[in-house]
């Protein structure tokens, strides 16, 4: 299942955010979009999930324009987990996961055996079977995120898109979610595309890093090819030391200063004295 963009322009209201984007997502791999705030990485992800219609150009799913495919068909090929998704009050985990079967159900058709199997499988994959009857509000942040991932899994799509799936989670829950995604990629062959903020997590878990700056992809490739002093300085405005992750051999960066000439904030105490 190939996902790519062709001369894609994206924007909100009057503002263009992404210009002339030609991006190919590597099938069967984990691709991670990184870049500073407002660079357009979430915008790109949303357009890949056809949540944002293109201004110009197209998003292609196996060579077909995604806007022209029936939306339920698209929902069987790619599942998107938005940032901070909201559910109606009082939903249980299992009820939430059942909504992942929506693309397979018709208005009057009931639940089929394959629906039931997909829901059970999704709960098992995410370790949520024991929480199936718990209300979503009663879960911890990490459990809740796993429940949402389970819903996306129940869609049984070859492609998973996730917008900052680790935001607002503590470190151990962040790793829990990322390791779950790695396992789904390795064992189930899922293509994973996600936005991450932590560069070292991106370096460690991505097959492909996609560096976005000012609405353009400025670098794409293996973390060891892409992450270096120059990218950190030019894209993130940071000076950084680089180490190697002792386990994976991937680059590990330690930012130590802003790469800008002038300081960002004026020292207020000095001003007061003067």
């Amino acid at each position: 299942m190939n996902l790519s963009t062709n001369q894609l322009y994206l924007g909100y209201d009057g503002r263009l955010v992404v210009e002339d984007l030609n991006l190919a997502i590597a099938p069967g791999q984990i691709s991670v979009l990184i870049g500073p705030n407002g660079c357009g990485k979430s915008t790109i992800l949303r357009s890949l999930a056809r949540l944002l219609p293109p201004r110009q150009g197209s998003v292609l799913l196996d060579g077909k324009m995604i806007q022209h495919l029936p939306t339920k068909e698209v929902a069987k090929k790619l599942a998107m987990l938005p940032q901070m998704p909201q559910a109606p009050e009082g939903l249980s985990v299992e009820q939430l996961v059942w909504f992942g079967r929506y693309p397979y159900q018709s208005v009057l058709g009931g639940r089929t055996q394959s629906d039931r199997e997909a829901v059970e499988w999704a709960l098992a994959q995410t370790g949520m079977t024991v929480f199936a009857s718990r209300a979503l509000e009663t879960l911890s942040g990490g459990q809740r995120q796993r429940a949402w991932i389970a819903m996306a899994l129940a869609q049984q799509t070859p492609i998973l898109l996730l917008d900052e799936p680790t935001t607002y989670l503590d470190l151990s829950h962040q790793l829990e979610v990322l390791q779950l995604l790695v396992r789904l990629n390795r064992e189930e062959g899922k293509t994973v595309v996600m936005v991450l903020h932590d560069l070292n997590q991106a370096s460690r878990f991505a097959h492909q890093l996609i560096v976005v700056n000012g609405g353009r992809v400025v670098a794409q490739g293996l973390p060891e090819e892409v992450l270096n002093e120059q990218i950190l300085r030019e894209v993130f405005g940071l000076k950084a030391h680089f180490l190697r992750d002792p386990e994976t051999g991937r680059p590990y960066c330690i930012p130590y200063a802003l790469a800008r000439k002038e300081p960002l904030m004026v020292d207020e105490r000095v001003e007061e004295k003067a």
Partner: peptide, 23 residues
Amino acid sequence: LILHQKLDVLSFGDSTARSLGMR
């Protein structure tokens, strides 16, 4: 009553509803 499931999906909000294949 017939459309109950669509109403459920709509009450998830735009992003999730569309991701689930809702027009």
